[in-house]
Each structure stands twice: as C-alpha cells, then as structure tokens.
C-alpha cells in the first residue's frame, strides 16, 4: 500500500506555494533564463552574471503570486564536476483568496553531477512563507531532484519534489515540473577543469 500511496502523491498536485523553483534549476553558473512549469508551482527566473538572480512565481490555484531575489554560492567542487551549491531566495507574495501579503524565503542546499551535457542534482529546500497581515507561517521541508539534458544553449528536464509542511498537522507537499533553461553565457559548466597551459614544444633540431 505504501508504494502506490507515495506514487499517487508524487503525481498529485501539492500543498504549496509561491516558490521561485526556477532559480534552483542546476543550470551553468553563468547568465541564464529558466522556467519550472509544473504542478502546483510555476516560476520563471533569471540568473545574472554577478551570482544574483530574480524570479516571478505563482501556483496553479492562483492563490499567491510573487517576486523573489536570490543569491547562490558554490560550497565545494572537484574536477569530476561533482559539487555542492547553496542558494537563498527571498521575496514577497500577494495572497489572493484571503487577501494579504507574505514574506517568502527559500534556503536551498544542492549536491550532484553538473556535467556539460547532463545534470542530476538532489537538494533540500525549505520554501517558507509568513503572512504579514495576521501572522501565519508555512514551513515545508522538501527534497527535490533535478534532471537536465543539454541541447545547444538550452537545458531541458524535470523536477520531482516531495516533502511536508511542518507547521501544524504535517501536510504532504509535492511538485512535478517541466524545466527549461537557456544559457546566456559561455555554457561551459560550473566545475570545468581550469585550462592547463600547453607544454611548450621542444624546438626542432635544425636540419643538417
């Protein structure tokens, strides 16, 4: 029974959020435009060259839509393109069904393979929201997985996420998204080996 229940849960729409998920797509660390279009969340974002990003987000119910700014960092990396990244997004969301404003914060930790053609990254994110008019909080903890393939300057893939809102009685949070990202920079990947200087060729002996 547990297997089908989890399977159904993964396929169903979830309990959150206005969350700038597009900014968590594991695209190259260069300027890019990304979108995570799924259930229940929809977001489009852009990373700038400086390591800062911006996004707009909403959900399928239209119960909230907002805008966020984000910063990202590479914590560790190695020449085989494995690495660990962190980011924090923060913004404001307008609540529409019960009108109000919420502060949104989404700290993220991601680890995985960031190759030049394929990326598989797992992460933990807590896309929290705090209603500012009449205090109420939502604090989900979500495990999410990203799988992206490169086609030229475009990356295409999926995001699958499962978690729980930990405020009050825990509630399941799920997300299934189609993901795209257009790399506006060099597109060489985040953890590329630094260019090695070529050995200076030995001078050919002068012909006798």
């Amino acid at each position: 029974m547990i297997g089908p229940v989890i399977g159904i849960g993964l396929l169903m729409t979830g309990a959150a959020l206005a969350d700038p998920a597009a900014l968590r797509a594991p695209t190259p660390h260069s300027p890019s435009v990304s979108g995570a279009l799924g259930l229940p969340e929809l977001s489009v974002g852009a990373w700038l060259d400086s390591g800062w990003g911006v996004a707009v987000e909403g959900n399928r119910w239209g119960s909230a839509f907002g805008a966020s700014a984000a910063r990202r960092w590479t914590l560790t990396k190695n020449p085989e393109r494995w690495g660990v990244d962190a980011s924090v997004a923060a913004g404001l969301a307008a609540l529409t069904l019960d009108p109000g404003v919420a502060l949104t914060v989404a700290p993220t930790l991601q680890a995985g393979w960031r190759g030049e053609r394929f990326r598989a990254v797992a992460g933990l994110v807590s896309p929290a929201a705090i209603r500012l008019n009449g205090f109420e909080a939502s604090l989900p903890l979500v495990q999410e997985n990203w799988f992206l393939l490169r086609a030229g300057r475009t990356w295409l893939g999926v995001e699958l996420a499962l978690g729980a809102d930990l405020v009050g009685t825990p509630a399941l949070t799920t997300q299934v998204s189609a993901v795209f990202s257009v790399d506006l920079g060099a597109g060489t990947g985040d953890y590329a080996r630094p260019n090695q200087p070529r050995p200076t060729p030995e001078p050919r002996p002068a012909p006798r």
């Binding site: 979830g14 309990a15 959150a16 959020l17 206005a18 229940p40 959900n59 119910w61 239209g62 119960s63 909230a64 907002g66 969301a93 609540l95 529409t96 069904l97 019960d98 919420a102 949104t104 929201a129 705090i130 209603r131 109420e136 909080a137 939502s138 809102d165 405020v167 509630a171």
Partner: peptide, 12 residues
C-alpha cells in the same frame, strides 16, 4: 469553493 490555506496554498 476555493480558500486560502497554509499561507500561500489553497484548498478546494
């Protein structure tokens, strides 16, 4: 009816 839930989510 659709109502606001869990701050920025919704319940039908």
């Amino acid at each position: 009816v659709r109502v606001q839930a869990r701050v920025d989510g919704a319940v039908d």
